[in-house]
């Protein structure tokens, strides 16, 4: 059984077809990169996997660990282990990062039938993880994404991923807007997460991140369908030659 199976996915946004029959299979332990030109449907794929409102599935199915998630709410998907790192992380004024993370971790614990971690244990773990991402302890006390720099917001997404330990992490353009140092920190975080029992889908426009996180498979999305799949060398080809050669 595959970890993620996407079958014949057709998705409309604002009544416009964006994904037009997309298939994708991800096995445990794998990292997949989804690349493609602007407007090809990369971010739509990331959002529709997470169940963002406004992304209407016309036809097709999304299955995670043999469970059909096509009609599940975003929080149900999260409980099953699906994580989305947002391209544009949202601010929630007044709610501290720590409070938010604890609420999320507790919600997962309730779902899996485990007991909620004690506040002390959680704070210790959150601080250690923040440190790993070169984020100060003070960072956890600030409002969720409130006044964060672009790099801090992206690292905050990785922090949440590491704390929630999802089965499948979908990272939507997590590399965009990062300088080279921040990119390395983020890549280290992703590599630390990478394990035999989980999987990652990297949605990216550039091959840059893939120098640090080497994918097992690379897919090229063009006009709502996967036009080509290959190993990590495909990313280099795209970097050198662009997407044009795949047309027609």
């Amino acid at each position: 059984m595959s970890l993620l199976e996407v079958r014949d996915l057709h998705v409309n946004v604002d009544d416009k077809p964006i994904l037009k029959g997309l298939d994708l299979t991800v096995e445990a332990g794998e990292v997949h990169a989804v690349m493609g030109p602007n407007g090809s449907g990369k971010s739509t794929l990331a959002n529709v996997l997470a169940g963002r409102p406004g992304y209407d599935i016309d036809v097709g199915s999304i299955t995670l660990d043999d469970e059909d998630l096509t009609a599940a709410t975003p929080d149900e998907r999260a409980h099953r282990g699906l994580f989305l790192a947002f391209q544009y992380p949202i601010e929630i004024p007044g709610v501290s990062n720590m409070e938010f993370l604890k609420a999320a971790v507790d919600a997962h614990a309730v779902h899996t039938g485990l007991s909620e971690p004690s506040a002390v244990d959680f704070i210790k773990r959150a601080r250690a993880t923040a440190e790993q991402l070169h984020l100060s302890a003070d960072f956890l006390k600030r409002g969720v994404n409130e006044g964060f720099s672009g790099g801090e917001k992206k690292r905050n997404e990785i922090l949440q991923m590491l704390l929630l330990e999802p089965r499948l992490a979908v990272l939507d353009e997590t590399d965009s807007g990062l300088d080279i140092d921040a990119l390395q920190v983020v890549a280290e975080g992703i590599n630390a997460f990478r394990a035999g029992d989980n999987a990652i889908v990297l949605v990216t426009h550039y091959q840059r991140l893939l120098n640090y996180v080497v994918p097992d498979h690379v897919h090229v999305l063009i006009d709502g369908r996967i036009a080509r799949s290959g190993d990590h060398t495909l990313a280099h080809t795209l970097e050198d030659e662009g997407y044009g050669w795949l047309d027609g």
Binding site: A50, G51, R52, P53, T73, P74, D75, R77, A78, H79, F83, L84, F86, P89, I90, E91, I92, V95, E99, F100, A103, A104, A107, H108, H111, Q160, L164
Partner: peptide, 18 residues
Amino acid sequence: QLFLCQQRGIDPEKAVAM
């Protein structure tokens, strides 16, 4: 904001309260 909270597994009712 609601979607972010939901994506992190927090149910909407709790998210609004938060």
